[in-house]
Write a protein that binds this DNA or RNA. Structure first.
Lengths: 197, 197
DNA sequence: GTCTATACGACGATAGAC
DNA sequence: GTCTATCGTCGTATAGAC
């Protein structure tokens, strides 16, 4: 292990660059474009090196998913311990930077066993964290958790936010304003109104 | 035009078979597997014939989307004029047969202009129909449409149902039971309880 | 650890026979 | 309308030099 760096070079090894390059290509052109030649060029290395680090392209895809999930989980854990978990949950799942890659992995997971397993594990860890945060928030607000099960509430908030992002990504925005306003009103009811908008 | 057939051969021309074969391959193996050779074999014709009917593979994909959308819209229009539009809306969007293809086209639409345009047009027609049905249902139930805008209600019902399907497809089911039960209770509030289930 | 070189199948697309 | 044949490119993956 080398000495720990001072400014976080984010491990700029070829392996790391390949992972980031693959994520970029998948985001911008779809998983089918993330070929060994394409990602190698993007990472500034030769094609054969891809197979030195990853036995098959699927292994590389899994690694992209894994590293993205790890970063996302850390971010989520930190954000959901703040003082407004419900709205934070909404905002995190409204992040447009994640939706493209998510869609690619969803499609991939429908057809590749290894990716399906990885995505399932990640999704359930996320759900656990989000549900824990919602449980606290609802209890604090004095909401009846029999009538509003935390896991159901957290899924509705997260999935509706994601749906809006997914649709926006393909240019569909019909009804979005009304739905956003509606969700905001519901969040105000559950978590108390806020000054910002 | 030939005489109308008695048992609905569903236009078994090569062109039609190619469209169906492409949908099948996309559903089972993803859009990247829907190559000209693959779909030709599946349809029982030779590869070059694909280019007789469709100038490029993208044109074929668009045609798959268009024909699926047309069938789906007809189905939806009929179903949503029945006497329980809210629960019908929920059931239609819970159809597992559609989710796989939907995910593929969502991913494709993120990267191909022609498919994005087609998907957007389809999604907005669906939203219009669903919202119209919800508007009637809410008015009948005496719901305040200022507090519950029909387009927001229809989006929540449709998108939550779809989210559950998408997750099920990749093996994620954590929290699904609770969310289904919760949604059923809300639908009972808006549309009156039913005897079944 | 990174490279050059190569095997070989599959890709989209076209030309032209029937 | 459907076929055979072919073009040039690109795909995954491996062997082996440095």
């Amino acid at each position: 292990m080398p000495v720990s760096p001072k400014t976080k070079p984010a491990d700029s090894s070829a392996r790391q660059r390949l992972i980031e390059a693959t994520a970029k290509v998948m985001r911008e052109e779809g998983y089918a474009a993330a070929t060994s030649r394409r990602v190698a060029t993007e990472a500034g290395v030769k094609q054969a090196l891809v197979y030195y680090y990853f036995p098959t392209m699927d292994d590389l895809y899994v690694e992209v998913l894994r590293s993205g999930a790890e970063a996302s989980l850390a971010n989520m854990r930190a954000a959901l311990t703040d003082n407004d978990p419900l709205r934070t949950l909404w905002l995190i799942n409204s992040d447009l930077r994640m939706t493209g890659l998510n869609t690619e992995f969803m499609a991939l997971a429908n057809h590749r066993k290894a990716i399906r397993a990885e995505l399932k594990a990640y999704a359930e860890r996320v759900r656990d964290i989000e549900t824990a945060a919602v449980t606290v928030a609802l209890r604090t607000a004095g909401v009846d958790v029999e009538e509003y099960p935390p896991v159901a509430v957290s899924m509705i908030i997260a999935q509706i936010a994601r749906s809006l992002c997914n649709e926006s990504a393909v240019g569909v925005t019909l009804g979005h304003e009304e739905l956003r306003a509606f969700m905001k009103r519901q969040l105000d009811l559950f978590a108390g109104p806020t000054s910002d908008d």
